[in-house]
Nucleic acid binder design. Sequence first.
DNA 1: TGCACATTTCCATTGTAATCAAACTATCGG
DNA 2: CCGATAGTTTGATTACAATGGAAATGTGCA
Lengths: 126, 126
Amino acid sequence: MQKPSVISALSALAQETRLDIFRLLVQRGPEGMPAGEIGERLGQPSPTLSFHLSQLRFAKLVTSRRAGRLIIYSANFKTMNSLLAYLTENCCGGRREICTADACDIIEPGGLSEKVGREPAKPGSG
Amino acid sequence: MQKPSVISALSALAQETRLDIFRLLVQRGPEGMPAGEIGERLGQPSPTLSFHLSQLRFAKLVTSRRAGRLIIYSANFKTMNSLLAYLTENCCGGRREICTADACDIIEPGGLSEKVGREPAKPGSG
DNA sequence: TGCACATTTCCATTGTAATCAAACTATCGG
DNA sequence: CCGATAGTTTGATTACAATGGAAATGTGCA
């Protein structure tokens, strides 16, 4: 995956409605969900939803297929995979000796669970 | 990790300079790198760099510590972990039977490597 | 053909992010 | 105290993103 695609994917996800859409589709799996149902669940008017879906599609984070009058959207897990790979690539310069609990357990099996629990502070005084 | 923190982290990474900074720090590991060196490597003027570093710090994707006149930035691997967890949480509704190669191999050990290779198209006609 | 439904495109409005010169703060050596 | 160095904050400018009403497109059915 190249940088422009990564930026495009991250920008797509860095928006509340789109993040909700994407997670909904990730949790739904390959079966997917029609645009209308997504809009209903998230309480979004159709033009807004359509705008966000097209952003996600452009970023290749979702795919769409037509089924009669419905357009079914599904998460694109391959793009997701590539994105995570890019972010963690060559972590700690590949030096395993410094790549411990505090650092690169990102790439450990089982590393992708709620281990942490810290919440950032509110904006304002930084 | 809660949604506002996730949005904040994704927004922070969805910008070329900040993505470069973050990856530089991920690859450097816990040792970190002074602001000046980051700016030199990425060819960014100091106010611009400082702006981006503060965005990353607000998103808790990096931490900073002072060493004399230098301020050393390091990647915060815990936040990174939580972010990846949030994105892939409850993938395919937890139904392993549909959570196959095409879908949730995100969360398989060894899933975080360059498996794919598809490059998105250029913007424009979309 | 014509009507209903699902979704997208158009476009004006509004809000927010990125940039960098200049001014500021903090640390060190003297 | 001073001057030099390392970084941050301020503030003006510019560009891009989100929203949703109205109109358009595409599909199914009679």
